[in-house]
């Protein structure tokens, strides 16, 4: 079928793809490294985690060239000391981040225990 000008009419279709998934609450994992010029700063991160996961994260300001703060899930401090964890995160984060970075990190902390127990002769 042609229109008055001799051209075929245009057909337009819209395709809709929906992908559902669980929302991460909060939208970060165990750790968030905040660069000095990152799109969100430490105060915004603190407000976010306080609103979405009250009491579960601590935002720690860092004296570092390009990392301004580290937000850490506080339960991790049960496994490893605060200073040790923060120093490790900053040391490793330093190599992969810059001032504009906002990097999330997932930590798998495992504890291996070997313990010798005495056998009793019955």
């Amino acid at each position: 079928m042609k229109n008055g000008r001799g051209k075929s009419p245009t057909k337009r279709k819209v395709g809709l793809h929906i992908h559902f998934s669980e929302f991460d609450l909060p939208p970060m994992q165990d750790v968030l490294l905040v660069g000095r010029r990152a799109p969100i700063g430490p105060e915004a991160v603190r407000r976010m985690v306080e609103a979405l996961a009250p009491g579960q994260y601590e935002v720690i300001l860092i004296d570092h060239t390009h990392i301004e703060a580290v937000a850490v899930k506080t339960t991790l401090f049960n496994w490893i000391s605060r200073d040790e964890l923060v120093n490790t995160l900053v040391e490793e984060g330093d190599t992969i981040s810059n001032e504009n970075s906002l990097i999330k990190a997932q930590l798998d902390v495992t504890m291996s225990i070997f313990k010798e127990v005495e056998l009793y002769n019955v």
């Binding site: 990152a38 700063g41 915004a44």
Partner: peptide
Amino acid sequence: RINHPNRIVADA
């Protein structure tokens, strides 16, 4: 000038 426009004022 030196802060990301998305940052909140508290952080800038």
